[in-house]
Amino acid sequence: MKNYLNRVAVAALTLGVATTAAAEEWNVSLWGAPRAFTEHVEKLAELVSEKTGGEFTLNISYGGLSNNRENLDGISIGAFEMAQFCAGYHRDKNPSITVLELPFLGVSTLEQEIELSMAVYQHPATVADLARWNATLLMPSPLPQYNIVGVGDAPAALSDFDGLSVRATGGIGAAMETVGAVPTSMSASEVRQAMDSGVVKAVAFAPHAHMSFGTIENATWWTENLNPGTVNCPVVVNTDALDGLSDEHREALLGSVEESLDHYVANYNGATMDAWGPALAERDIEVVSFSDAEIAAFKEAAAAPAAAAWIEQNTAAGLPAQELYDLVTGMIAGDS
């Protein structure tokens, strides 16, 4: 009996060790604070923990692990297992996905943005591009068309942007240059201070970011229908860490992406956009709307030249740039 009990004790101890070894915790590098932009990551963490009985957890950090411009670098060296970044922060590091940041692509919904992003993410050239950083693209952070909040006199025409310093990254910055604006690229967390100090007079953001980063607190105007484009901000994982997961944990992670994105879209289209109009009204921010003719002229000046330059530059860098561009524009045309 004593020997039997000893064997039971050893078996229980072994089982305990096995259970502990199976438990996994990933560190996730985000920035700012929990907001609409991070809802899918928060939901993913919740789902993964639920599906694995708490054996696989995502430990989300808002700025405690890395600077947001260095999240891809951190992924590459395994400093953390998951991160979010924006393509426009370092176009040279992820040129393949910057096709999604070209101005005036004509994307109209968050659902369409997800569809386009996932198609580009799964393209072999994109997979190889991110593999240079030991990174696997997991899911996008779909954002609506950007518009501009500014201080001072509201622009009455697009010509009033001439000489105006605007925080605008990627293709949006290139588009703003065509109307004489002076685009400046900086991370979202730097924007409020730059605006308060006069380094920039206007900021291009999606509605959630204007609210989250306080750009509307001192703003006097907002462009309602400029819609020059958006940015692409994927969530990536360290490829080695992904490959090292058990089948159960990998399925819990990958199998929760769609539900996490559905939650994100519902939240953005609901609570976030419901709060946007009242936030402007409470601060007496003037809503600026440009004529159809001005928007058409802006698109004509910005869209084709930006696309041609992107294709030329990235073809020279070894990417199948025309193929990626045709993939995106073809899908948009098919949806229209």
Results as ranks from 00 to 15, higher is better:
K2T: 11
K2D: 10
N3R: 10
N3I: 09
N3H: 06
Y4N: 07
N6F: 09
R7T: 10
L15P: 01
V17K: 00
T19S: 12
T19L: 09
T20F: 00
T20V: 08
A21T: 03
A22E: 08
W26M: 03
W31G: 00
G32M: 08
H40E: 10
K43D: 04
T52S: 08
E55Q: 13
E55P: 00
L58Y: 08
Y62Q: 02
I75P: 02
I75D: 05
G78E: 02
M82I: 15
Q84V: 05
A87H: 01
H90R: 14
R91L: 15
I97H: 03
G106Q: 03
V107K: 15
E111H: 12
M118Y: 08
Y121A: 12
H123C: 11
T126G: 11
D129Y: 06
L137P: 04
Q145W: 01
N147E: 05
P155V: 13
A156V: 10
F161Q: 04
D162F: 14
G163D: 06
L164A: 02
R167Y: 00
G170E: 06
G171T: 07
A175N: 06
M176A: 07
T178A: 12
V182Y: 01
E190N: 12
Q193Y: 04
S197F: 11
K201H: 09
K201G: 15
K201P: 01
A202I: 06
A202F: 03
A202T: 10
M211N: 01
F213D: 12
N218P: 02
N218L: 08
W222M: 13
T223G: 06
N227C: 03
V235Q: 13
V236T: 12
A241T: 04
D243I: 04
E248A: 08
E248R: 13
H249W: 02
E251I: 01
S256Q: 03
S256M: 05
V257C: 05
E259T: 15
D262N: 14
D262K: 14
H263R: 14
H263C: 05
A266P: 00
Y268D: 05
D274L: 08
G277F: 07
A279N: 00
L280H: 00
A281T: 11
V288H: 03
D292G: 10
A293W: 02
K299I: 14
A301I: 07
A301G: 13
A301Q: 04
A302D: 10
A302I: 09
A304D: 15
A307S: 06
A308Q: 14
A308L: 12
A308N: 09
T315V: 02
A316F: 03
A316E: 12
A317E: 09
A317P: 04
G318T: 11
Q322D: 11
Q322C: 07
L327Y: 05
I332S: 05
A333I: 06
A333H: 07
A333N: 13
